[in-house]
């Protein structure tokens, strides 16, 4: 493993990637806590296990096919009723692109 210390700046960057607004003080705390967990994970970083197949899933999966028939899905109005904002059968979101 390259490094198990995460800086405050790096923590702010990760938080932004994860779409979490955090303050500078929170970033300092999370940096030290994340570093501690990653330091613990150093034990597997040191394992020499090249060539071992990764396991993505405990169950070996393959595609299951069925006839393409129309079946009932969730009621649209009931689903939209849970949304913070909806209109004319659609979710309403704040501005995505700049005006122009």
């Amino acid at each position: 493993m390259s490094s198990d210390q995460i800086s405050r700046e790096e923590t702010l960057h990760i938080a932004h990637l994860a779409r979490l607004a955090i303050t500078d003080e929170e970033a300092a705390l999370y940096a030290s806590q994340l570093s501690a967990v990653l330091a613990h994970a150093r034990d597997i970083g040191a394992l020499d296990i090249a060539g071992v197949e990764p396991t993505m899933h405990a169950v070996s999966m393959r595609n299951v096919l069925r006839e393409d028939v129309i079946s009932r899905s969730l009621d649209r109005d009931e689903v939209l009723a849970s949304a913070p904002s909806s209109e004319a059968g659609m979710f309403v979101v704040p501005r995505i692109a700049g005006e122009g």
Binding site: M1, S2, L38, A41, I44, G45, L47, I49, V52, E53, P54, T55, M56
Partner: peptide, 12 residues
């Protein structure tokens, strides 16, 4: 280094 290795450990 992290996620991939953890999945190999899962195999072990």
């Amino acid at each position: 280094a992290l996620y991939g290795k953890a999945q190999q450990v899962r195999t072990l």
